[in-house]
Measured scan of single mutants.
Amino acid sequence: MTLTLTVPPGAKVRVRITNENGETTEIEVEPGETVTITLPAGSTVRVEVEVVDPDGRKRTETFTLKP
């Protein structure tokens, strides 16, 4: 399973991925970048995406991906 994120110009994104064992991976994606994350097959993962807009506003979306 893959997750692809494209960050709009001016925004910053931090992604936290937590697996079933509670292990967390965190990455930051710079403005204008596209990143593809390969998620472990057969695992349920929690993905938290934090977006910081150019004006400093933050918003966070959290979702769970199941196999």
Score class of each variant (00 low, 15 high):
1 M>K: 02
1 M>T: 03
2 T>N: 04
2 T>M: 10
2 T>F: 13
2 T>R: 08
3 L>I: 04
3 L>Y: 07
3 L>P: 08
3 L>V: 05
3 L>T: 03
4 T>V: 09
4 T>K: 07
5 L>Q: 02
5 L>S: 02
5 L>R: 05
5 L>Y: 06
6 T>N: 10
6 T>P: 13
6 T>C: 15
6 T>W: 14
7 V>F: 15
7 V>D: 02
7 V>K: 03
8 P>I: 13
8 P>M: 13
9 P>I: 08
10 G>Y: 03
10 G>F: 03
10 G>C: 10
11 A>W: 08
11 A>P: 01
11 A>H: 02
12 K>D: 11
12 K>V: 07
12 K>C: 10
12 K>M: 09
12 K>E: 14
12 K>L: 07
13 V>W: 02
13 V>N: 01
14 R>A: 11
14 R>H: 04
14 R>D: 08
14 R>C: 08
15 V>S: 03
15 V>M: 12
15 V>C: 08
16 R>A: 05
18 T>F: 13
18 T>N: 09
18 T>H: 11
18 T>I: 15
19 N>Y: 12
19 N>S: 09
19 N>D: 06
19 N>P: 15
19 N>Q: 10
20 E>C: 14
20 E>Y: 10
21 N>C: 13
22 G>P: 07
22 G>E: 09
22 G>S: 09
23 E>H: 07
23 E>Q: 07
23 E>T: 07
24 T>V: 05
24 T>C: 11
24 T>L: 05
24 T>M: 07
25 T>K: 08
25 T>M: 10
25 T>D: 05
26 E>S: 04
26 E>Y: 04
27 I>Q: 10
27 I>D: 08
27 I>W: 11
27 I>Y: 12
28 E>L: 02
28 E>G: 12
29 V>S: 10
29 V>D: 15
29 V>R: 10
30 E>Y: 05
30 E>T: 12
31 P>H: 06
31 P>R: 11
32 G>Y: 13
32 G>D: 12
33 E>A: 11
33 E>L: 10
33 E>N: 06
33 E>K: 09
33 E>W: 09
34 T>W: 14
35 V>L: 07
35 V>C: 06
35 V>S: 08
35 V>D: 03
36 T>W: 13
36 T>F: 12
36 T>V: 12
36 T>R: 10
36 T>Y: 13
37 I>K: 13
37 I>H: 12
39 L>C: 13
40 P>S: 13
40 P>G: 09
40 P>E: 12
41 A>S: 10
41 A>H: 08
41 A>I: 13
42 G>V: 14
43 S>L: 13
44 T>K: 02
44 T>N: 03
45 V>P: 02
46 R>Q: 06
46 R>W: 06
46 R>E: 05
46 R>F: 10
48 E>G: 01
48 E>F: 03
49 V>L: 04
49 V>H: 00
49 V>T: 01
50 E>P: 00
50 E>F: 01
51 V>K: 01
51 V>F: 11
52 V>I: 09
53 D>W: 14
53 D>F: 15
54 P>S: 07
54 P>Q: 09
55 D>S: 04
55 D>T: 02
55 D>H: 02
56 G>R: 00
56 G>K: 00
56 G>L: 00
56 G>A: 00
56 G>W: 00
57 R>E: 02
57 R>P: 00
57 R>Q: 07
58 K>C: 05
58 K>N: 01
58 K>Y: 02
58 K>R: 06
59 R>A: 01
59 R>K: 02
59 R>G: 00
59 R>H: 11
60 T>S: 02
60 T>W: 12
60 T>Q: 01
61 E>G: 01
61 E>K: 05
61 E>L: 15
61 E>Q: 08
61 E>C: 15
61 E>Y: 15
62 T>H: 06
62 T>E: 06
64 T>W: 15
65 L>P: 03
65 L>W: 15
65 L>Q: 00
66 K>H: 13
66 K>E: 15
66 K>R: 03
66 K>V: 15
66 K>L: 14
67 P>Q: 10
67 P>E: 04
67 P>T: 14
67 P>Y: 15
